[in-house]
């Protein structure tokens, strides 16, 4: 049972505040972070992975102060992250990509092979440049489960995939908490994926939290529908 708490997080870029006094709490399993474009979802991830420094607030995972850890040390601490755009290194093989994640998070090389088995990627000795989009997404997931992760951040992991592929990816994502024991945060615009994957969600809008709780309950609440789902149609088309 792990618990992640963000308290009073404010991020400021010049005059803009992508996050304004946001407090969120997540408890084990797969949790969604949703909201329209510009709501502050990716900024939340950037705070967690150390790319954005909040001017106020704190982040706590099971008693550890995450903000005190430098960005490049957070992988060793147990943080994994995927980006909207997959980050597979084209000039390295799929296995080397995952190996890289293992090496820099302080995990043994055997963990890389275990992670590749988890996503069931065929022929991992192909170069990143030779992989399909789906296979690259698999490599990203493998890099995220390598070693002993405590917190996995997935930013639109299924972008650019067809429904069948999304379905397989969904299966992999929902199994992460039980398989490796990490808390998973998922940002996505695909409401079907969010509904199927996440037990709880938090909704952001204009840098503020407008709702949080069990997924179905939150998604059916009137203020969320008003603030968010109207725009959602435009986003998902």
């Amino acid at each position: 049972m792990s618990r992640l708490t963000l308290s009073g997080i404010t991020v400021r870029y010049g005059g803009v505040k992508p996050l304004d006094d946001v407090s969120l709490a997540f408890e084990s399993g797969v949790c969604g972070v949703i909201g329209p474009n510009g709501a502050g979802k990716t900024t939340t991830f950037n705070v967690l992975s150390g790319f954005a420094l909040p001017v106020a607030g704190s982040v706590d995972l099971d008693g550890d102060d995450l903000l005190a850890v430098p960005a490049h040390r957070r992988a060793r601490w147990g943080l994994r992250r995927s980006f909207q755009q997959e980050q597979v290194v084209r000039t390295l093989t799929a296995r080397e990509n995952v190996l890289l994640a293992a090496e820099h998070s302080g995990s043994p090389a055997a963990d890389a092979d275990r992670a590749l088995d988890y996503v069931r990627l065929a022929r991992p000795h192909r170069l990143g440049a030779e992989l399909t989009m789906f296979e690259r997404r698999l490599v990203d997931i493998a890099s995220c489960v390598v070693g002993t992760p405590r917190l996995v951040l997935l930013d639109e992991p299924a972008a650019g995939l067809d429904p069948a592929e999304s379905e397989r990816l969904l299966g992999l994502i929902t199994r992460i908490p039980e398989e490796v024991g990490a808390l998973v945060l998922l940002v996505d615009h695909d409401m079907d994926l969010v509904r199927a994957a996440c037990g709880t969600v938090a909704v952001l809008d204009f840098g503020r939290r407008i709702a949080a709780g069990p997924t179905l309950q939150v998604l059916s609440s009137p203020e969320v529908r008003k603030a968010y789902l109207g725009i959602d149609e435009e986003v998902t088309t």
Binding site: N46, G50, F51, A52, L53, A71, F83, Q84, Q85
Partner: peptide, 10 residues
């Protein structure tokens, strides 16, 4: 400069 927000290359 406080932080590096790396640009993700396509």
């Amino acid at each position: 400069r406080v932080v590096t927000v790396g640009v993700v290359r396509a």
